[in-house]
Structures are given as C-alpha cells and as structure tokens.
Design a protein around this nucleic acid. Sequence first.
DNA 1: CCTAACCTTTACGTCAACGGAAAGGTTCTG
DNA 2: CAGAACCTTTCCGTTGACGTAAAGGTTAGG
Lengths: 176, 176
Amino acid sequence: MSHLDPADPAADEPRLRRIQEVAAELGVTTRTIRYYEELGLLEPAGRSGGDYRLYDADDVERLRFIKGLRDDAGFSLAEIGQLLEDETARERNRARFRTTTDIAERRALIDDARARVDRQIESLRDKMGRLGTMIEEAEDRHRHLLVHIGELEAGVEPVPHEHPRARRTAVPRTDR
Amino acid sequence: MSHLDPADPAADEPRLRRIQEVAAELGVTTRTIRYYEELGLLEPAGRSGGDYRLYDADDVERLRFIKGLRDDAGFSLAEIGQLLEDETARERNRARFRTTTDIAERRALIDDARARVDRQIESLRDKMGRLGTMIEEAEDRHRHLLVHIGELEAGVEPVPHEHPRARRTAVPRTDR
DNA sequence: CCTAACCTTTACGTCAACGGAAAGGTTCTG
DNA sequence: CAGAACCTTTCCGTTGACGTAAAGGTTAGG
C-alpha cells in the first residue's frame, strides 16, 4: 500500500502535462494537437487557471491511437472521427449507465456499446484484409520475378522473348 | 500456334481502351488518371490518331495497384511514385538486359532488380506490421470491454466504480 | 518583480490531390 | 455529313491537414 502512504501524497495524482511535452513525446506539433481538438477528436482532461491545456495519460493514449490510425492505417481524420465518435459515445454511455437503474435502458446501452466496438474492429479488420491482399499480390510478382531471374542466371540467351500479355504496339508514339 | 492462325487475326490483339472506360472500371475519375500521369505514375500504352489516350491491360493493372496503395495501404502519391519508380526501373532494366551480352552487367542488372523488388515488399510488410499491431491493440480493448460488459450483465450494481487509471479531477471543468 | 519560455486565440498561407469549366478537336452512329 | 458523346489541354477553384506568424496572456526560476 505504498501508494496510499500519507507520506507520498502525489502517488495517484494523475500527472497532467502541457501541450508541448505531449507533442514532443508523440512526435507531432502542438498545432496538430490543437487541430485535432478543433475537429472534435479529443479534449484535454483539464485546463490550468490561465487556460493552458492539460493532458492526462488517457489523452496521450488517445492521441497515440489517432496517430496510428492516420500513419499506419491511412485513415483520414474524418474517418478517424467516426471511429472515435464510437469511442466517445461509449464513454457517454458509461456515465449514463451509472445514473440509471432501468434494466431495459441499461441493456440497450450495453448492446449499443458492443455494436460500436464491433464496428470499430470490423473497420480495422477490413482495412487489414485489403492490405493483406495487396501484399500477397506483390509477393506473387516477387516470386514471379525470382523465377525469371533464376532462368536468366541459368544462362538463358538474351532472346527477345516476346511476352504474350505485354505487347504494346498499337500506335507508334511520335511525341515525347 | 492457334494465336498465329490467320483465320483469327484478333486473337492476340491487345484490347486498348479509352480513359473513361478504364476510369469507370476502376471507380475513379478521368481527371484522377490524368493527374497520375502528370505525376509520372503511368503512361498510356498508346495514343489514337487524334491523340486519345489508349490503355492496355497492363496499364489497368498498374492503375489498380496504385489505387490499392493509395486506398488500402494509405500511401501518398509521392511514396507510390517511389515504389513504382522501382517498378519502371525494372522494366528499363529488362530492356537493357536484352541488349547487352556483358555477363557482369547482366548480373548487376539482376541484382538491382532483386533489390528493388525486395524494397517494395519490405515497404509493404512494414506497413502491414504496424497495422497489425494497431489491430491487436484494438482487439485488446475489445476484449477488455466485453469483460466489462460481462460484469455488468452479471448484475453488478451501478456503483461509481472509480477506475484507478481514469481519475481526471485535476481542475474541475467548468465549460462544455 | 522580472524575464524567458511557454501558452492562448485568430487568421492567413501552403501543399497535395484532385474538381470543374472553358475552348476546341475526334469518333461513332444514323 | 451531322450531331452526340467522347476526348484534348489549360487553368483556376476547393478541401484536408496542417504551417506560420501576430498580438497578447501565463508560469516558473532567479
């Protein structure tokens, strides 16, 4: 129970950081973070007395997630907005959940939450699948090329070797 | 040798299509295709007498590849340009290969081709890996949520249930 | 209390990736 | 050979995702 030790009052204090520190850690600019806020992608956990934005660990995680969706998955910020809307809706649902005792409503909120998360995962899986297909195709061509190289290294003569699918002799180009 | 049969002169005629037909098949606009050409991402196989762009099957494949890299993999057109530059360089190499008999140069060209393809695949794999990591994280949160839902459905009371990591009480929010 | 280093909002600038219209030429079909 | 439906190049407009000042207020250290 060291973190409840009265001699260590800062133990569970939720470490709030200012925008530049967060930006540096994530490798983005402060402008980018403010822009995301402008688009409604996140809200800082709090503000200082002088209105400085203050971010907690969850905010940083959320930002990291956004960055991943943008850089790694290649989603637009609008699409990310959709995915995150589901996430923030879940948070709202959680709050609502705790304030109601209506069994039916609670079940509805649960179902809603599950549906949202399912959509989020499905969206990612979909992207993943398409990327996977792309890589397979690229690897096919890779193997195809290696076979070709193998033939050539085996000492095949530089015969014109007209590839049936690659004839492009429709109209002789005059320009360029 | 049926494709040399004089009774079937259209057998290996390389079906050339105009820009709109290609665009429709790929689900892009003609403007997009022309823009890609402007950036040097592709050249039509030929032109008609009246300077209409004419595309063959290889061109369409290349365009499909570009679209995949853009939509599925989320590459910028500049990055795609790099990836394709490798590909067109390979084509140049093939032509060069057939015009030389110098064993050393031929081997150099082969190694170059292999290196280019390797880079291309590696680039895709890298992206794939990062996307995979993202999905795993999302699935983690998915499972986490399902556990949470399970607890709730099991009839846990709507106790405030202060999550240790989620305390955001630094500054009482006044706005929103 | 002063100053450097940070922060705020507001607003205009920029670059990629096209959209869309103008002014004219081409192809196909009847 | 006329007309509709294509196509050409050229050029300006737009949208997303920020960059970059400007004009000020805030915070931490000395």
